[in-house]
């Protein structure tokens, strides 16, 4: 395995609000190598988007406290001066967002917006930048790119807009592309095309891809490694096959068991995770998932679990015994119910 391109260490982001301090991201670590794809999964409010924005300094403000390190090219993005970080944005690390319509400026032609991105980091002439923009639109699969260069965002379809966003993000050949819910606003057939495109670009350009999503299906199809976030923390991290085959965290179990599938029996009821995520302002001590966890033990409400290896490749933040969790999931995966799993996991205690 090569050395990490981007390595996030113990990143925390706190917002000062009128209601109190929101701990949006709370000690998150991950790293990514060139050409790999990392999926960050979580529900709304889990801190997955804030983390991505913070790497680019887009959450910096007087009300924000950012701690930890994010090493990129030997330098720490968190400690970096604004101007130096600006030069990395779009050049070293680029980002695309959920809603491609609102993410493109409504008053400027798509081509001009791409040209602007190119010229933000190079001395390219208007003509050269325009030629490059044309090439990029072709690269991301926009038909008749020459005509599309002079069109406005509202003249594009949803999928085409996201392609244009990707073209813009690629304009300075970034080493890392952070895609924040890139297909959530799109139709399923278009989503498939955009995911294919991202996958193709990652392979062809050797980019590292960080894909932030709530959709386990999207992660399964695009990521090499997955980090599951809950209430500002990573609760589980593993290679994608491992995570889906042998998850070790009850929250991941909950997610996997609550989604309807295209295969298997549809007579079984879905198993929702009861309750809802905790407040990010006043968090009770112990495991953040404790209140929603069917297997919660007394110590879960006292001690905070830390992300630690639970097998050769998987790391999990859970205080329950590892072997118990392993057998409990085997039971659940084989169609067993929560009670049986509870007995397996907690029966010994």
């Amino acid at each position: 395995m090569s050395t990490p391109l981007l390595s996030v260490e113990d990143l925390s982001v706190q917002f000062d609000t009128e209601d109190g301090v929101v701990r949006a991201v709370d000690g998150v670590s991950w790293s990514i190598e060139p050409g790999r794809a990392l999926g960050i999964v979580g529900e709304s409010g889990s801190g997955k988007t804030v983390g991505g924005l913070t790497l680019l300094g887009l959450t910096r403000s007087n009300n924000t406290t950012i701690a930890g390190r994010a090493m990129f090219g030997g330098e720490d993005l968190v400690a970096m001066q604004d101007e130096q970080l600006r030069q990395i944005r779009g050049k070293g690390i680029a980002m695309i967002f959920q809603d491609p319509l609102s993410s493109l400026h409504p008053f400027y032609r798509v081509g001009d917006q791409i040209v602007e991105a190119i010229q933000a980091h190079s001395e390219a002439s208007d003509k050269a930048a325009r030629a490059r923009a044309l090439e990029l639109l072709g690269l991301v699969g926009i038909p008749d790119p020459r005509a599309r260069l002079d069109a406005y965002p509202h003249e594009f379809s949803g999928g085409m807009r996201q392609r244009a966003m990707i073209a813009m993000a690629l304009s300075n050949e970034p080493k890392v592309l952070i895609a924040d819910e890139p297909t959530t606003a799109l139709d399923v057939t278009v989503q498939a095309q955009i995911l294919d495109l991202l996958d193709r670009l990652r392979r062809e350009l050797g980019m590292a891809l960080v894909i932030i999503t709530h959709d386990l299906g999207v992660v399964a199809e695009t990521a090499d490694d997955v980090a599951v976030m809950y209430a500002g923390r990573i609760v589980e991290k593993a290679p994608v096959e491992e995570l889906f085959a042998r998850p070790m965290h009850p929250y991941t179990w909950g997610l996997l068991r609550s989604i309807p599938r295209l295969t298997g029996s549809r007579e079984e009821p879905l198993l929702p995770i009861p309750g809802r995520p905790p407040s990010m302002i006043s968090r009770p001590p112990g495991c953040a998932f404790a209140d929603r966890c069917a297997y919660v033990a007394d110590e879960c409400r006292v001690a905070e679990p830390i992300l630690s290896p639970a097998g050769t490749t998987i790391a999990s933040a859970c205080l329950l015994p590892e072997t118990g969790r392993r057998s409990a999931w085997s039971g659940l995966a084989a169609g067993g119910d929560t009670d049986a799993a509870f007995k397996v996991l907690r029966g010994g205690k």
Binding site: Q191, A192, E221, I259, L262
Partner: peptide
């Protein structure tokens, strides 16, 4: 068929075989 094929499945390993756009269809 095209719609069903496009749905990303939460089962890794199907990547590359299933997703295809309408044009592909």
């Amino acid at each position: 068929e095209a719609l069903l094929a496009a749905v990303p499945s939460p089962e890794p390993g199907r990547r590359g075989q299933t997703s295809q756009g309408l044009a592909g269809w």
